[in-house]
């Protein structure tokens, strides 16, 4: 897909990205951030722009399983990467456990920082460095929530971490 047709006088680069399991072969201007690629040409607007400078975490996505700020990534620099956005984690009909926990715990209000919070929380659980509430709070501090849902976000993450721990204990026992 050539997304640069209207400003075609400018140089582009070939980039191949896997986004939510779907392969995209793109011709991109090098100055396009992953965030703007997602929210603009690809119309994957679940990933949010809150500051565009790595100050808020609303744009958090998983790149090769790791949570990063998509606003500070030039899309061309991610050639060959696997990207998971909030849309790829689950749908309203088939939610990811973290999405269900956020819903249940009212871990959001306006919902704008929420996709970034959820991607970040999924990344956090995968990293395995948070073992208590203080560590959850510290390691989720890259996601600002102006509605102040932090207490509920910590509850939601604790629940999912507890469920994961219970699951792995059970598997270990078996």
């Amino acid at each position: 897909m050539d997304l640069s047709s209207q400003t075609s006088s400018l140089p582009t680069c070939s980039v191949s990205l896997s986004i939510n399991g779907q392969k995209h072969d793109l011709e991109l201007h090098p100055w396009v951030s992953l965030l703007d690629l997602l929210r603009g040409p690809l119309e994957l607007t679940g990933t949010k722009k809150g500051c565009d400078h790595g100050q808020c975490g609303a744009c958090t996505v998983l790149v090769d399983g790791q949570r990063v700020n998509s606003c500070l990534k030039l899309a061309v620099s991610l050639d060959g990467s696997e990207i998971t956005t909030i849309e790829g984690l689950g749908s309203p009909e088939n939610m990811h456990p973290m999405q269900k926990a956020f819903l249940e715990h009212d871990a959001y209000q306006c919902g704008y920082c929420t996709p970034g919070q959820i991607c970040s929380a999924v990344g956090l659980v995968g990293e395995g460095h948070a073992h208590n509430r203080a560590e959850i709070r510290e390691l989720m501090s890259g996601n600002l929530c102006r509605c102040g849902a932090y207490t509920n976000i910590a509850d939601a993450i604790e629940e999912v971490m507890g469920a994961e721990a219970a699951k792995s204990n059970k598997e270990a026992a078996e």
Binding site: G57, R67, V68, N69
Partner: peptide, 9 residues
């Protein structure tokens, strides 16, 4: 320093 996301990148 920074945040978990920034440290990953």
């Amino acid at each position: 320093g920074a945040s978990a996301q920034l440290r990953n990148a």
